[in-house]
């Protein structure tokens, strides 16, 4: 089922008229998600982000099909699913990184708190300061470790003095669990660190601007188990202050770090629910196949 922006809008408006107060669990009025294939409860009590009727097209290709999902405040939600199912695509919708792809077209509604992030009045610069991102491959800037972390606060004008900036950089590195390793080499290039350290540097860089949501696209896929464990530990700590969305191919990782899990399949959001429930008692056949297939 493919919907145009207009249809989605109409559907939303109708929904607003029909369903009133009792349904109001999230700030966005919900459409007929009962008719969708998604199994499980897509809404949460305290949503940070609310996505409704999201469709993504790469040219003719329909990569995300009418996905609705709430992301709760201060939760870690994992996106899982087979390769090419659209996890990254959906994730990149949440901070509008897909804007850079000229053939990519997005319809539907995504809200961060009360703001529609695809609204004309929203500047991507501001959005991306609020929704940070950590990529699959560690991609520190080819500048010093210090500069890597200082970059975000600097371009957003978050600090006034050098001392404040120094503190912020140290604090971010500390929260990313990297400070001990880099204390003595702040002026060395970020690219001279090991892969795991680089990824933690990227996390430090992301949290330096104090975002509300952090998107992580397979942050550990290039790392060894020890570095992975460190990052997972870090994610757990960061949950206190941030909402984290993590794409992962590792079931174990999803099970370890997330509270909720969403399973994507060929652009559809098949099932979403508490992580424990998804892994122990999947309701949808596809989810079960995927999970059992992986667990052997």
């Amino acid at each position: 089922m493919s919907t145009t922006a207009l249809e989605t809008k109409v559907a939303l408006d109708q929904a607003l008229d029909l369903n009133t107060a009792p349904r109001k669990q999230s700030s966005v009025e919900v459409t007929d998600y009962d008719n969708r294939q998604t199994v499980g409860k897509i809404t949460v009590d305290h949503p940070k982000m609310v996505c409704r009727g999201v469709n993504v097209y790469y040219g003719e290709k329909h990569a995300i099909k009418n996905v609705g999902l709430d992301i709760g405040a201060n939760e870690v939600i994992a996106f899982i699913g087979p390769s090419g199912c659209g996890k990254s695509t959906f994730l990149r919708c949440l901070n509008r990184m897909n804007d850079t792809i000229s053939i990519c077209r997005i319809t539907g509604q995504i809200k961060l708190d009360e703001d529609d992030i695809y609204d004309k009045s929203v500047d991507v610069v501001q959005l991306r300061a609020r929704v940070g991102m950590v990529f699959q491959k560690p991609n520190p800037f080819p500048k010093s470790i210090y500069e890597n972390v200082a970059y975000g606060p600097r371009i957003h004008g978050m600090v006034n003095t050098k001392a404040e900036l120094d503190d912020l950089v140290r604090d971010s590195l500390e929260r990313a669990g990297l400070i001990k390793e880099v204390e003595k080499r702040m002026n060395e290039p970020g690219t001279s660190l090991s892969g795991g350290q680089q990824q933690r540097l990227c996390i430090a860089r992301a949290i330096a601007v104090n975002p509300e949501v952090i998107l992580m696209d397979e942050p550990c896929s290039a790392l060894d188990p020890i570095a992975t464990a460190k990052i997972e530990e870090l994610i757990d700590e960061l949950r206190e202050n941030y909402t984290i969305i993590i794409v992962t191919h590792s079931m174990q990782q999803a099970a370890r770090v997330s509270q909720r899990t969403a399973y994507f399949h060929l652009g559809d959001l098949i099932e979403v629910g508490e992580t424990d429930q998804i892994f122990t008692n999947p309701k949808h056949k596809l989810t079960e196949d995927y999970i059992t297939g992986r667990f052997g």
Partner: peptide
């Protein structure tokens, strides 16, 4: 991507 992702 890194730069854009930081909000540059």
């Amino acid at each position: 991507e890194a730069a854009l992702g930081m909000g540059a």
